[in-house]
């Protein structure tokens, strides 16, 4: 079977043939398999939002090809069925919300694909519970919500469609800390139990790194790293070089390492980090175990 999403030498340019022309993607090659949990990270303006909008044909490459479940998005006349498969939550939920009530907002996509009103009601009930927004009156205008509530509505409206691929652009922004964790857990369980393919763009490196099986790092329109979280965070200097940064735990451990502590620093789990530090401190009794401090 072919990959779920395939990008072959994809280039994308905003405002071609104008003084504002800008190459946002330059020669991206990528394969995404069914059931993966991927996080896309990269500094501001590196092309993350541009990249993911190719996954459901919102943007089409200037050069190269994007194949989704066997269909070339530049050639197909049936983007509707691709968009049903690939659900996408935008970076700013306001750009996606337009209905007069929360209910209509959540029902919009489902109605569009011809679901019965009974089915729609059932799905709305279940999805609002899952995202902890069942306390909101469904007849309220979605524009009169707080930032975090609005983001949950945007996520819920796509989740209700039960897509095969769930693409989320900064879904954790504006969510409170427990909300971030609950959302990731919910998505993780859909990924594990229902083999939902998940692609999350996020600046919350610590949070997403705990769930993703693979991290893709973008910089200036190119993929510069692609691998499991532990591999990615081995190269701290590179992530700092592209002015992205690393998770707090990694930064702490790396600072200890640079001061001479003989410890691994690509650790994303709190318990593991605590154990590593305790073990190193115990070994400090014996000064010989101090690694020689690297010369800068």
């Amino acid at each position: 079977m072919s990959s779920l999403i395939e990008m072959n030498d994809v280039w994308y340019q905003y405002n071609p043939d104008s003084p504002l022309a800008y190459w946002a993607l330059m020669g991206v090659n990528l394969r995404i398999e069914r059931g993966e949990f991927i996080s896309i990270i990269g500094p501001t303006g590196s092309g993350k939002s541009t990249l993911i909008q190719h996954f459901n044909g919102l943007l089409k490459p200037a050069k190269g090809e994007v194949i989704v479940d066997g269909v070339d998005i530049s050639r197909t006349s049936d983007l509707k069925s691709i968009r049903k498969k690939v659900g996408m939550v935008f970076q700013y939920p306001e750009t996606q919300i337009f209905s007069e009530t929360i209910y209509d907002e959540l029902a919009f996509g489902l109605r569009n694909y011809g679901y019965s009103e009974d089915e729609i009601e059932e799905r709305i009930e279940s999805v609002t519970k899952k995202l902890g927004i069942d306390y909101l009156p469904l007849d309220k205008s979605p524009f009169l919500l707080s930032g975090g509530e609005m983001r949950r509505i945007a996520i819920a409206s796509i989740l209700a469609m039960e897509p095969e691929v769930f693409v989320l652009d900064e879904p954790l922004a504006n969510l409170d800390p427990q909300g971030r964790r609950e959302l990731l857990r919910e998505i993780d369980s859909l990924n594990k139990k229902e083999s939902l393919t998940v692609i999350i763009v996020s600046h919350d490196l610590s949070e997403v790194s705990r769930y993703a099986n693979r991290i893709i790092v973008l910089s200036e329109g190119k993929i510069i790293m692609d691998g499991p979280p532990k591999e990615i965070f081995k190269d701290v200097e590179k992530l700092i070089d592209i002015s992205l940064g690393v998770p707090q735990l990694v930064e702490l451990l790396y600072n200890l390492y640079k001061r001479g502590a003989d410890i691994p620093y690509n650790i994303l789990d709190m318990e593991e980090a605590a154990k590593v530090i305790v073990k190193w401190r115990k070994s400090l009794g014996n000064r010989d175990k101090l690694r020689t401090i690297p010369t800068a």
């Binding site: 409170d176 800390p177 998770p247 707090q248 735990l249 702490l252 709190m270 154990k275 530090i277």
Partner: peptide
């Protein structure tokens, strides 16, 4: 923090764990 839906940040959280482990 936990009671009201927030979470203790990573560094203080790690500090508390290290305390528990005897540092």
């Amino acid at each position: 923090l936990t009671r009201i839906g927030l979470e203790i940040p990573e560094i203080p959280a790690l500090s508390l764990r290290l305390k528990g482990l005897g540092i």
